[in-house]
């Protein structure tokens, strides 16, 4: 092999190796992710959908044609009660709107919202209340629905990269579980 050929082959191998190094580098480029900028407030829970049950005796027309052993004592309609979520940070309203509502007859109600939170100390208030304009306040079951309403007021200190999680415990209260260092 003459010198020119040797040089050419070495160059070819070096170029191939260089291309591979570029691929390896591009495979793990360090990126300063969103955690370096600030923290996040996360409001999340899932619960049985609060509902109101309206019952009435069946009319004659409804009973007509129904065999005796199949006649219901009463006919009931169940309607999910819409709930709203209000989030205030340092007195400013961050969010005020209905919780995720998949449908009128849905059996579960899920709440999930994320808000950017500047690092530092903040007064936090999260309220989960029935969406009053759409609720039949005269209903006798309204007390049990009202009992689901809950509010959390707390002062939080968030460092960059922290997630402040607000969730609902088994007693129906809004809580902020401690965010430990280990993966959940």
């Amino acid at each position: 092999m003459n010198a020119a050929n040797w040089l050419k082959r070495t160059g070819a191998a070096a170029l191939a190796a260089g291309a591979m190094v570029v691929i390896v580098f591009m495979s793990q480029v360090p990126w300063l992710g969103p955690g370096s900028e600030g923290s996040e407030l996360r409001v999340s829970w899932r619960m049985p959908a609060p509902s109101l049950r309206h019952c009435r005796p069946p009319t004659e027309a409804e009973l007509e044609g129904v065999p005796g052993h199949m006649r219901p004592g009463e006919i009931c309609n169940e309607e999910t009660v819409p709930f709203g979520l209000i989030v205030l940070i340092d007195g400013d309203t961050l969010h005020a709107g209905p919780a995720w509502h998949p449908g009128r007859r849905a059996r579960t109600l899920a709440v999930y919202e994320r808000f950017p939170l500047p690092a530092g100390s903040h007064a936090l208030e999260v309220s989960f209340v029935p969406d009053s304009p759409r609720v039949d306040a005269a209903s006798p079951q309204m007390d049990s629905v009202q009992a689901l309403a809950t509010t959390l007021s707390a002062r939080v200190v968030a460092a960059p990269g922290d997630v402040v999680l607000v969730t609902r415990n088994d007693n129906g209260r809004l809580v902020m579980p401690p965010t430990g260092p280990g993966p959940p």
Partner: peptide, 8 residues
């Protein structure tokens, strides 16, 4: 419960 800060 942490937002990644340094991501490869």
């Amino acid at each position: 419960l942490r937002i990644p800060a340094e991501v490869p």
